[in-house]
């Protein structure tokens, strides 16, 4: 079952083509890595998929809804975590979960069970009443992820979720991602860490607004006769003519 299908999606700003005619599909429960150098057009593409910006041309379906005409329904079926840390620092851990559960319309009667469940998954039972600003960065990122999936979305978009996080916490973060994928949540993730790209079921590599490669990490490594994803990425990204932003 396809949860994302994109056909010839294009976004131009004046004469600049940020996203150039991309097409791809993502299957339910898949961990899809969306790679590309800075300025390759990843963020613009994600913004269109989340209903934040309208495509110049082309179509996209996310969770069964048209991204252009049904953006409100798209928004209700996805979760989103941005590269910037974005919880409320002056609210307690559980209040942050409570807030987003409410915004995403989780039924009132389920909310306290949800809070307990997420605190338990994170091992945060003791931090329930802690203000978020007192948590270490890695913990905040894990909490952000939990909150992005608090309403059991069909898809969760993670935009560089592990930026600046230590290796041990990154490992734990990916365990959370696997748990969510096992529950049937599709993961759409961008990252600059190529070891993380290896964890994905499939990856796409964007160069200058176009998708240059799309396959499983194993097939890509074979195709480009590389030892690891880092080499694959270097070969493709070197062709880029655009400056990083």
């Amino acid at each position: 079952m396809k949860v994302i299908s994109v056909n010839n999606l294009t976004k131009t700003f004046g004469t600049f083509t940020a996203v150039d005619n991309i097409s791809f599909e993502v299957t339910k429960g898949e961990i899809f890595g969306f790679l590309g150098a800075n300025g390759a057009g990843k963020t613009t593409a994600i913004r269109m998929l989340c209903g934040l910006s309208k495509p110049t041309s082309g179509t996209g379906m996310v969770a069964g809804f048209n991204i252009e005409t049904e953006s409100e329904k798209v928004k209700a079926s996805i979760g989103y975590m941005s590269q910037k840390f974005s919880l409320y620092e002056d609210l307690k851990v559980w209040e942050n979960i409570r807030l987003y559960a409410g915004i995403y319309g989780v039924p009132e009667k389920n909310i306290s069970a949800k809070i307990d469940q997420h605190l338990q998954t994170l091992g945060f039972e003791k931090e329930r009443e802690t203000l978020v600003k007192a948590l270490p960065l890695g913990w905040k990122q894990k909490l952000s992820f939990s909150i992005a999936i608090v309403h059991d979305p069909k898809i969760v978009f993670l935009d560089e979720p592990t930026g600046g996080v230590d290796p041990v916490t990154r490992r734990q973060f990916w365990e959370l991602i696997y748990q969510a994928a096992n529950r049937g949540i599709t993961i759409f993730v961008t990252t600059h860490y190529m070891d993380e790209a290896e964890y994905c079921d499939r990856v796409s590599i964007m160069v200058d607004g176009k998708i240059e490669a799309l396959d499983s990490p194993k097939n890509l490594k074979n195709k480009y006769s590389s030892k690891n994803m880092d080499e694959v990425f270097q070969r493709l990204a070197r062709k880029a003519s655009r400056d990083a932003d």
């Binding site: 934040l52 941005s82 840390f85 974005s86 915004i103």
Partner: peptide, 13 residues
Amino acid sequence: EMGTMEILLVSPM
């Protein structure tokens, strides 16, 4: 500034 606005705009609110 904090980036929370982006999260809110992606939400159905």
